[in-house]
Simulated assay, not measured.
Amino acid sequence: MNEQEPRSIRGAVAIVTGAASGMGAATARLFAAEGAHVAVTDVDAEGAQRVAADIVVAGGSARAWALDVASDADVLRVVDEIAAWQGRIDILVNNAGIAGFANLDDAAYPALWERMLAVNLSGEMRMARACLPHLVKAAHPRIVNIASTEALGATAGDSAYCAAKAGVTGLTRALAVELGKAGITVNCICPGPILTAMTRAIPDADRETYARRRTALRRYGRPEEVAHMTLSLVLPAASYITGAVIPVDGGLMARNA
């Protein structure tokens, strides 16, 4: 083993959910550039295909799958196909998620609540369960769950999303404890205000005002900045980091005023 291997994911097989755009796409591209074989998965099949094709054109290794993480059948089928593709699974990045606002007394709230938990929380559990038989055989098995700073604070009208993302932080800690004996590290990233499809609809002036008032760095983050933290957590060298909940938020949670 040379000195560079512990800080490389070259040859690893990584699944990234919600990888058709935003942080998921940035993570898939970064992992491929680092030499990993990347399973690009998303409910948006065409978007996943575009990201995988871009990776291949750039000289990387990737294949796309249509995947709804709220579907048990979808998850089991796709994970089996990915394992057959390269013979193993080393890394799982649970990035797939949805957003939506509703007040507690809104008629639409119960349906939003159920869908939010099915995708944003139970989807991460489903993926971890399906990948577990493969991860226990990996040399450097890693799970990274993507939550949100909404798990650490709250916005009015966002309680379903906040509850699901807070559940992700709890799931992360519990799985870190449960799976540690198998050498599987499980960590969680809580992105703050990031320029993605979820935030693109916010007017530019409103984004700028929010960033100046709330973040220490006075700006929105880029998907690539989250992807680089994800990469750091899946490196073989990151072998003693588990159960961590890490904000990538430009200092949002650190700032009082």
Rank of each mutant, 00 (worst) to 15 (best):
69 V>S: 08
149 T>H: 08
101 F>L: 13
174 A>G: 04
137 K>S: 09
132 L>W: 09
52 A>R: 05
138 A>V: 06
155 T>I: 15
125 M>C: 04
126 R>L: 04
80 D>E: 15
67 L>A: 13
60 G>N: 10
98 I>A: 03
87 G>K: 04
64 A>H: 01
191 P>C: 10
110 P>Q: 07
173 R>S: 03
58 A>K: 11
183 G>A: 13
131 C>T: 15
138 A>T: 06
176 A>R: 01
72 D>G: 00
125 M>W: 13
72 D>S: 06
167 G>N: 13
54 D>H: 05
154 A>H: 13
192 G>L: 13
91 I>T: 12
130 A>L: 10
181 K>Q: 13
83 A>W: 10
112 L>P: 03
72 D>K: 07
87 G>W: 07
193 P>T: 11
70 A>G: 15
52 A>D: 04
107 A>D: 15
184 I>A: 04
191 P>Y: 14
153 G>V: 12
86 Q>H: 11
137 K>M: 02
171 L>I: 07
168 V>S: 11
79 V>D: 04
97 G>F: 12
179 L>E: 00
136 V>I: 15
182 A>D: 12
162 C>F: 00
166 A>F: 06
163 A>D: 05
139 A>I: 03
120 N>I: 10
60 G>S: 11
68 D>E: 15
109 Y>P: 07
165 K>M: 07
103 N>V: 00
109 Y>H: 12
54 D>W: 02
131 C>A: 15
191 P>R: 14
92 L>P: 02
112 L>S: 11
51 V>W: 04
116 M>C: 14
106 D>I: 02
84 A>P: 02
64 A>C: 05
116 M>E: 13
132 L>G: 00
140 H>Y: 13
143 I>F: 04
150 E>Y: 08
56 V>I: 15
65 W>T: 09
54 D>I: 00
157 G>D: 05
156 A>I: 12
188 C>E: 08
191 P>D: 14
123 G>Q: 11
144 V>K: 01
158 D>V: 12
169 T>E: 08
97 G>S: 08
189 I>G: 00
106 D>N: 06
168 V>C: 09
82 I>T: 01
142 R>V: 05
145 N>I: 06
84 A>D: 09
99 A>Y: 14
129 R>I: 08
88 R>H: 14
53 A>L: 07
136 V>T: 14
86 Q>L: 01
152 L>K: 11
